[in-house]
C-alpha cells in the first residue's frame, strides 16, 4: 500500500511539473505571500455608503497582486501614477471623470469583462478618488470592483515595491 501511495504522489508531481511548464496559466513554484497587517481589517472611509463596492485590506490586496487575479486601477492623476504606483496598475485618473469615463474604459479596459476582479486605489486615507471612481464604474456595470483604501501609501509602508517610471524624473 505504501509503495502505491508513493507511486501515485510521484506521478502527480511529474504531471504537475509538466503541466505547469506548458500551461499559459502557469505560476511560480514558490509564491510570495506575506502576512502584513495585524488583522484590523480594511480601512473604510466615513464617506462610505451601503451599496459601495467592498473595501479590502493590505493582505487581500497583496494576495490579489501575488496571484495576478485582479487588475489594479490607480485613480490618482498621471504625475502621481508615474512616480510610484502598485506595479502593473492601470492609470484611470478620476480628474477626467465622470463625463470622459466611458471613452477611457473603451481603451484601457477594452478587453476586461464587466465581472472581472478590479481593485481601485489612490494615495491613502485622505484621498477618496478611488471611492468615486469605483462608484462610477459600478454605475457603468462593473461588478467585480473592490476598493483598497489604504492605497499606495499603505502598500509602501508595508514594504512593498512601488513602480516608478522614468518620466517621473523628467
Amino acid at each position: 500500500m505504501i509503495k502505491q501511495t508513493i507511486i501515485l504522489i510521484i506521478l502527480s508531481i511529474l504531471l504537475s511539473v509538466v503541466a505547469n511548464s506548458i500551461s499559459p496559466e502557469n505560476i511560480s513554484w514558490i509564491g510570495e505571500y506575506r502576512e502584513i497587517s495585524d488583522g484590523d481589517g480594511p480601512i473604510v472611509p466615513p464617506s462610505a455608503e451601503a451599496g459601495d463596492p467592498p473595501f479590502i485590506d493590505i493582505n487581500i490586496a497583496n494576495i490579489e497582486f501575488a496571484t495576478k487575479t485582479s487588475i489594479f486601477v490607480d485613480a490618482r492623476d498621471h504625475e502621481e501614477f508615474i512616480c510610484g504606483t502598485i506595479p502593473g496598475s492601470i492609470s484611470i485618473p478620476f480628474e477626467y471623470m465622470p463625463d470622459e469615463l466611458e471613452g477611457y474604459f473603451e481603451t484601457v479596459l477594452a478587453d476586461v469583462s464587466l465581472d472581472y476582479s478590479i481593485i481601485v486605489f489612490c494615495s491613502g486615507e485622505e484621498c477618496d478618488l478611488s471611492l468615486h471612481l469605483a462608484r462610477n464604474m459600478q454605475d457603468l456595470g462593473y461588478t467585480g470592483l473592490k476598493i483598497f483604501f489604504g492605497g499606495a501609501r499603505e502598500w509602501d509602508n508595508a514594504g512593498f515595491e512601488l513602480e516608478r517610471r522614468e518620466e517621473c524624473d523628467q
Binding site: 504537475s16 503541466a19 496559466e25 505560476i27 511560480s28 509564491g31 510570495e32 496571484t67 495576478k68
Partner: peptide
Amino acid sequence: EPALFAKSIWYYHLIPGLLINILALVLPWL
C-alpha cells in the same frame, strides 16, 4: 487556474506562504 486555487489556499491561513504554490500545483493532479 492554479493562481485562483493558490488564492483559495491562502485564505485558509494554514500553511507557510512558500508552500502555497507548490500545494496549489501538485494537489489538483493528485
